[in-house]
């Protein structure tokens, strides 16, 4: 069934007129996990941020191309990106909880932005999201604690919970486990596999073992270009491009 949840077409990103992502086209099937791999600075983050128009924050960035979610182009002029952004959750490379807000308020921030005030719903969402992010057991007794008092890894799991709380249909994760210890990493990987039943996940990772473990598809980027994109197993065992072959064997990067 070739039902695509998300289609990125001819995406080009430039910072101050310097091109970082060159004409990338990728299609993502619903309920799959796709890993983006490639050496540092190859444009993974830049590409990922196009998928929910995160670049709108920065006036020096120019994005060209189309991003189609459920048959709507995110970059159409008359499009209100906010509605679509609420369907796309994102976890950033560096944990960025709201430091002055409590754990509870961090998780419910997205729901409150959507006008949900019912305490039962919020409570339920906090427990559910924190459990999915494997943080619940560590913080359930102290949900009023400010987020800044959590460790770096806990903060990152809080950010994952915050992104999940709005029930996104697509989840973008930028190296979510770079701040986590092996045990939390393993738990987050389990979460990702479980979440696949409900949403479409795109994850940037430097850890090739992780890509192999969790993703159905893998894309290899190099110097802003998409070099190879296909089923994870195939990309790692029988890559078609010599650059990919070199990279997955660990020769550079």
């Amino acid at each position: 069934m070739d039902k695509y949840k998300l289609i990125a077409e001819n995406i080009t990103v430039s910072y101050n007129n310097i091109i970082s992502v060159k004409n990338i086209t990728m299609k993502f099937k619903a309920n799959t996990v796709t890993s983006l791999i490639g050496p540092s600075g190859c444009g993974k983050t830049s590409f990922l941020r196009c998928l929910n128009r995160m670049h709108d924050m920065n006036k020096n960035v120019k994005v060209m191309g189309k991003v189609v979610i459920d048959n709507t182009d995110l970059y159409l002029d008359n499009m209100n990106p906010i509605y679509h952004r609420r369907k796309v959750g994102m976890v950033f490379q560096k944990p960025n909880p709201f430091p002055t807000m409590s754990i509870y308020d961090n998780v419910t921030a997205g729901l409150r932005l959507n006008g949900i005030k019912n305490k039962k719903i919020l409570d339920g969402s906090v427990e559910n999201s924190l459990k999915l992010a494997y943080l619940w057991d560590e913080v359930k007794s102290d949900l009023k604690k400010p987020a800044i008092e959590l460790s770096g890894g806990q903060q990152q799991r809080l950010c994952i919970a915050r992104a999940l709380a709005i029930n996104p249909e697509i989840l973008l994760m930028d190296e979510p486990s770079s701040a986590l210890d092996p045990i939390s990493t393993q738990k987050i990987e389990e979460t990702i596999m479980n979440l696949k039943n409900e949403l479409t996940i795109i994850i940037v990772t430097h850890n090739m073992q992780q890509a192999i473990r969790i993703s159905d598809y893998t894309a290899f980027m190099y110097l802003g270009k998409l070099i190879e994109f296909g089923e994870t197993k195939k990309l790692f065992t029988a890559p078609t491009d010599p650059l990919t072959a070199k990279y997955v064997k660990g020769f550079f990067g």
């Binding site: 509605y83 950033f92 997205g110 709005i166």
Partner: peptide, 18 residues
């Protein structure tokens, strides 16, 4: 105020005022 903070709100679908 760090940009990452604003990005967090932006990601959740916040408007400029939010």
């Amino acid at each position: 105020v760090p940009l990452q903070q604003q990005e967090a709100a932006f990601m959740l679908g916040a408007t400029k005022w939010e």
